[in-house]
């Protein structure tokens, strides 16, 4: 479904991704790990179409079609959605109005249907109706922000959901909810590409069914099974980097 082919990406004229290859098939669960600054968010944002991340080489292909030149809105319409590591505050824009418009445009719902659906779903993510009249992410805690990202994923139901550190800056209760919700979305058939530092977020996921990629300095240096997660949790990246000579 998603194929990233020898991707080279520059930010501000500096090469950050130095040839990344990645393939995610429908319904699969992939995990990307790696130290801070290794390029995980850059990979996620580039796939989502952030204009600041310039593709200097390689391709991003979705369902056989190249999407490298498409705008972010066109990519999500084709089924790739990114839940941000740092969702920005959007002053003045109410969550409910924003999400209504999203559902009207993406799913062809009428605004009233959309409203009801949003309010109902939001409850599962611990948002009350009045919370939805707040501005997008403005004054939100880490946990609230990440829950709002997941709520949007549950509403949009993409084919591939990229989750950039949904577990960072989050309180324990939210973490457990988020972890459960990721599993739920995956069970519905949504392919997942999850960026994380810790295995904890995967507590509800069957380790046997996941693929783990380890990034270092703009490259994927190792791909393996779920056992890599526990190993990294225990001993950090040094051992793996030693083995691959990176």
């Amino acid at each position: 479904m998603l194929k990233v082919d020898n991707l080279h990406v520059n930010v501000d004229h500096k090469e950050i991704l130095k040839g990344v290859d990645l393939e995610v098939n429908p319904g699969e669960f992939h995990v990307v790990m790696g130290p801070n600054g290794s390029g995980k968010s850059t990979l996620a944002l580039t796939i989502a179409g952030h204009p600041k991340y310039k593709v200097k080489g390689g391709k991003i292909i979705l369902d056989g079609e190249e999407v490298t030149g498409l705008g972010p809105h066109e990519r999500v319409r084709r089924g790739i959605m990114l839940a941000f590591q740092h969702p920005p505050e959007v002053e003045g824009v109410k969550i409910i109005e924003f999400l209504q418009q999203v559902l009207v445009e993406l799913k062809g719902l009428d605004p009233v249907e959309a409203y009801d659906l949003i309010v109902e779903k939001a409850r599962e993510f611990w948002f009350k109706e009045e919370d939805l009249h707040r501005f997008v992410n403005v004054g939100f805690s880490g946990g609230e922000r990440k829950r709002l990202e997941l709520l949007q994923a549950a509403l949009i139901e993409p084919k591939l959901l990229i989750l950039d550190e949904p577990d960072s800056g989050v309180d324990v209760d939210s973490l457990s909810l988020i972890s459960r919700k990721i599993e739920e979305l995956h069970r519905k058939g949504i392919a997942i590409l999850l960026i994380t530092h810790y295995g904890r977020i995967l507590q509800h996921i069957d380790r046997e069914s996941i693929t783990v990629h380890v990034m270092k300095d703009g490259r994927i240096v190792r791909t393996g099974g779920g056992e890599l997660v526990d190993r990294i949790d225990r001993e950090g990246f040094a051992g793996i980097f030693g083995e691959v000579g990176a």
Partner: peptide, 20 residues
């Protein structure tokens, strides 16, 4: 970018921010 990444084109995203 955030608003666009949820499916709004640049014009619609701008309109939403201006309205807000």
């Amino acid at each position: 970018f955030y608003l666009m990444s949820r499916g709004l084109d640049e014009e619609k995203a701008t309109q939403l921010i201006v309205k807000g």
